[in-house]
Computed example of a mutant assay.
Amino acid sequence: MCHFFIITDIQSLHFINFKMTGQIKTDYSYASGCGVYDLENWGYSTGLIKAGGIPEEILPDIVPSTGIIGELTKEAADALGLSRKVMVACGGVDNSCMALGARNIAEGRVYTSLGSSAWIAVSSKNPVLDIEKRPFVFTHVIPGMFTSAVSIFSAGSSLKWVRDHLCANLQKEASEKGVDVYEFMGEIACRSPVGSNKLLFDPSLAGGSSQDPSPHIRGGFSGLDLGHSQPDIIRSCMEGVAMNLGLVLDVLRKFCSLSEEMMMVGGGSRSSVWRRIFADVYNMDIIKTNIGEDAGSLGAAAVGAVGSGMWKDFSRIDDVHRILETVKPVKTDVEKYRKIRRAFECLRNCQKEVGELLHG
């Protein structure tokens, strides 16, 4: 019989810190995702630890994200080509670092990360706890704050599916013109009006999150007729992603007073067409800055800057961001999307029923 002994629980952050300093430490944001953390009391939960049968001594000590846990070991300094005097801050979980890098440094600030999947996160002094919708919540890297988020599983992935299966001709044409295919698809989508000529798209191609009606929900087009064309299909996909995120955004609105502007980050934020759609669906100002896909990296760097004393606090984040565009909602289009939303909610519920029937 083999016996296994766990000396300590090491995850990616802890391992990197250990390799650099010889110290195994975690921060509040990383600890908050370990499964035995008490969000409201800022520490490990004795009750959860006992219920899980986990030896409490295996859990790493919690320090602030900006806490200096040591200097580089000789091995790390040699491998990295750096001085041994380099100080190492503990760091934080990716979600909280991204929130910091996306300017979520004050109560109610909110951003949308539009990538393969997508989520909307708000920073607040209280965690958004909803037993039904179950947003994912982490302690922020900023002391005294939390970052709470809602999500959909297939955002950019849905548009990629449309590209791969319904837009082979556009891929070829974009390649011949030497332009980005998604940019080209956006131009084509603009030939279709708001509402995509009454074509709806549910982007649940990867199933449903806890904010969706069912994990078994699946995606699909609805209202398709002989009059629809490729521009309608592309635009309806982009609108469907925005509409679905608009619905889950309501979970956060129920608990928090949100800023009037929404920061957009991630690869999808490069699309001016998508930013316009989001402004009208959310009925919020959409902010695009120079940071884009580097929000997580900026947040991690800012943690190091504050920990080392280079920055006094995190307010410098705003100085790093340079606003490239602010897209304001158009009232007439906001109203159009408000009417379409009722049909989209109906589609979502129907897709839930179909998904559960197919699941058996």
Rank of each mutant, 00 (worst) to 15 (best):
K25T: 09
S29R: 04
G52M: 03
L100I: 11
L324G: 11
S117C: 06
V194D: 08
V179H: 05
H228R: 02
S158G: 08
P231N: 07
G267F: 00
A102G: 07
C190Y: 13
E75F: 04
R348Q: 13
D164S: 08
T332S: 15
N197A: 03
A106E: 15
G33W: 03
I233F: 05
G309V: 05
D313F: 01
G227K: 12
S12V: 15
K177F: 13
S83N: 08
G35A: 01
D78A: 14
M262V: 05
D285V: 14
L357F: 13
F146N: 10
I234N: 04
L245Q: 02
V303R: 01
V86M: 06
R276M: 10
I120E: 05
G266H: 00
F136Q: 03
R322Q: 14
F278N: 03
C256W: 04
W274N: 00
E187Q: 12
V93G: 15
S214M: 00
K50C: 06
H140N: 13
A102N: 13
R338V: 10
G70T: 04
S214P: 06
F314G: 05
E40F: 10
M263K: 04
R253A: 13
G246Y: 02
N95P: 10
S196K: 07
K331P: 11
L166W: 10
K352D: 05
H321K: 13
W119G: 00
Y337N: 03
G355C: 00
I286A: 06
S113Y: 11
T147Y: 08
P213M: 04
A242Q: 05
V194M: 02
L224W: 07
K254A: 10
F184T: 11
G309L: 06
E325W: 05
L205P: 03
I68G: 04
G227R: 10
G178E: 07
I317P: 08
P55G: 07
S45G: 08
V334K: 10
L199A: 07
N104Y: 13
K352Y: 01
G81Y: 09
P203I: 01
S315Y: 03
G91I: 01
S154E: 08
C350A: 15
G309D: 11
D225L: 09
G219I: 00
S158W: 12
V128Q: 12
F138N: 12
S259H: 11
V248D: 07
M262C: 03
L39M: 12
D280F: 00
H359C: 08
G355M: 02
A121W: 05
M185E: 05
L358V: 11
D294H: 15
C190I: 10
D232I: 06
I68E: 10
D164G: 06
T147E: 10
E75V: 12
V327Y: 08
D319K: 12
D294P: 12
R341S: 12
A149L: 05
A305I: 12
P213T: 02
L247K: 11
L324K: 14
S271E: 13
Y111Q: 12
S236C: 00
Y111F: 15
I323Y: 06
